[in-house]
Each structure stands twice: as C-alpha cells, then as structure tokens.
Design a protein around this nucleic acid. Sequence first.
DNA 1: AATTTTAATTGCAATATTACGATAATTATA
DNA 2: TATAATTATCGTAATATTGCAATTAAAATT
Lengths: 109, 109
Amino acid sequence: MGVTKSEIFSESQNQIASVAKVLGHPARIAILQQIIKAKSCICGDLVTEIGLAQPTISQHLRELKNIGIIKGDIEGTRVCYCIDEEKWSEIRDLLATFFQQDICGKDCC
Amino acid sequence: MGVTKSEIFSESQNQIASVAKVLGHPARIAILQQIIKAKSCICGDLVTEIGLAQPTISQHLRELKNIGIIKGDIEGTRVCYCIDEEKWSEIRDLLATFFQQDICGKDCC
DNA sequence: AATTTTAATTGCAATATTACGATAATTATA
DNA sequence: TATAATTATCGTAATATTGCAATTAAAATT
C-alpha cells in the first residue's frame, strides 16, 4: 500500500521515526553539514555545493524545515538557511535517549 | 525518479542516511523497543504485540538485520531476534558524532 | 510419513519518494 | 517600469516503500 499505519504506534515511536526518516537521505545530511560548515547558507550555494537541481534542493530544504531542524531567513531575493539550535539539540537528545535504553544482557541469541 | 543519487555523496553521508532511513519507520522503532523490553524476542510475539501482519513484520525484521542492529537465532520452528549490542553502540555513536558537530553561533538567521 | 507450527518469500496493489523541467512569485536593480 | 536574480511550487516520470494474502520452507510433533 505504501502508507504507514501510524495510528497503531505510540506518539513517541512516530516522533522518533519521523525525525529519522528526514535524516534518512544523504542529500539532507549533506545540506545540514554544509549549513554548519559554511557561515553562509544560501540556497543557491547549496545547489552548487551538493550538485542536485535547484527544485530538488528546495524540496529537501522544505522537509528539513518541516521538522524544524533548520530555519530560513529571507534576504532580498535570497534565502539564508541555518540550523535551529534549539531544535537541533532536541532531536539530538531524542535520539540519544532512544539509544540510552539498557540493552545489556539482551544479547540472547 | 524515486532513486537516490548516492554516488554524489560521501560514504559517511550515505552511511548516516541509510541507518537513519531504517530507523525512519515506527514499526521498526516499535520492534527494537519490544525486543529490548521483552527477554523473549520471537517473531510471532512481535506480530501479536505490534499488530501488523506476519509478512510485514518479517520484512521490517529483514531491514533491521540488514544494518546489523539485530540478529536472529533459529530455535526450531521459531526465530529469536535480539539486539546486536556491538552494532547498536556503533550506530548510537555514529549518530551522536553527527550531532556533536559544533553549531554554536551558526544560528545566523 | 503426515501434520502442525512458525517464519521467510513471492507477488501485487496502493501510496510515497526522488528528481527535475517548466513556471510562478518575489525582490533587487537598471 | 522592465529586467535580472533567486527560490518556491507545480506537474510528471521513475523508482521505492508499505502492507498483506498466498505460498513456500523448515523443523517439531503426532
């Protein structure tokens, strides 16, 4: 069917999954790294740096914006994208907490 | 097209993305949590607990096995799934390292 | 050996994702 | 105001993902 049955999972499970899903594409990882590396984070620069078409980059930027990990500031005809530090930390902690689960001795096989 | 242009990204970017992609579905998060919570990690139990059809669970288990985060031990007609502690830590560290990047002052917008 | 139990695989339908050309929208500049 | 520059949106093609019924595979039990 292609449609995820979100309703049978907990809010927390859906939240972790939806964040991970957005991180689950190399272009979006590359965009985040480029935004962090460069002080400038103009959409056009990302297009040049990453090597995907402008509409494709724009689409990935929108998905990153949807989970709030980046924000965009309109500067004339350009848009400056940057990390939302608060959300970045929130997502980092969300994943860290997931992985902090005690798995010792669960290696039963 | 639906096909990711992996060749234009670094190995590290592809690695992070492919791990995140597998974590990017609530059923797979639920499966991991259930395996950790229960000592028993029989496929059939996961079907009952999670409420998706057996082939669907089996498919998600295969994806989790593909990145090595779980392993399956055949016990007669049953299969006992469990966390691969080493790979679990490896993936935890991979994501933690990604999020450790210094973003201070990058909040330029 | 036949049956039962359990999980993997196959095949398929529905939907989602990825990528990009064309176009629209918006602001700056000539 | 017309043009240029930049980014978002629309439309579409190709591929991927999700989910399940039906079937197969393999081991245990009768």
